[in-house]
Amino acid sequence: MSKPLRIALTKGRLEKDTVGLLESLGFDCTEVHEKGRKLILSIPDANLEVVLAKAADVITYVDRGVCDMGVVGKDTIMEMPGKFFEIVNLGFGKCKFALAGKKGVNFYGGFGVKTIATKYPNVARNFFEAKGMDVEIVKIEGSVELAPLLDLSDGIVDIVETGTTLRENGLEVKEDIAPIAARLIVNTVSMKMRQQEIEALVEKIEKKIAE
């Protein structure tokens, strides 16, 4: 058998969903379930090697070609784009990027420059640049919802799933920016050098998702 294909999975929910998907394709993922402290795990019957990583690192690994494939959220891809092929929308990990602000306040009102708090400065910048709008962006690491409440910002750009956190804090979605779901990404050289194996796996995955 040839060298295994190496796939980087975003730790946490996307990892579980991906493993679930692989299991539904009939692959034995025991080692991934019983990982202990191991960082590289194998799924022998799929000839896969699984690497668990933080979302941003999945992109770096695939971009640099140390992993052939990766599963990562569209949110991370939008925030830190790289050179890779983005070939399957896996459908799980669904949510959206949205612009939110205080309920009942017209975000676009007034002539002042707006301040935006976000964990995703590039997404926020690209969104407002496309509108031709100058904004001041403040990078926040923790609960972004606090920023408008503390009057640090006029709005936030963040991931919204159900909107509960927003509602409970007197905020509302002002505008949707982009839908988000997990993606299967592939290194540009791996796609060519190991085309048959990757296409065979992708085909199975696409079929399963379509079901």
């Binding site: 890779f84 092929f85 983005e86 070939i87 399957v88 929308n89 993606r183 592939v186 796609m191």
Partner: peptide, 8 residues
């Protein structure tokens, strides 16, 4: 097409 971003 360059990114082989099939879904998009």
């Amino acid at each position: 097409i360059e990114e082989k971003n099939y879904p998009a």
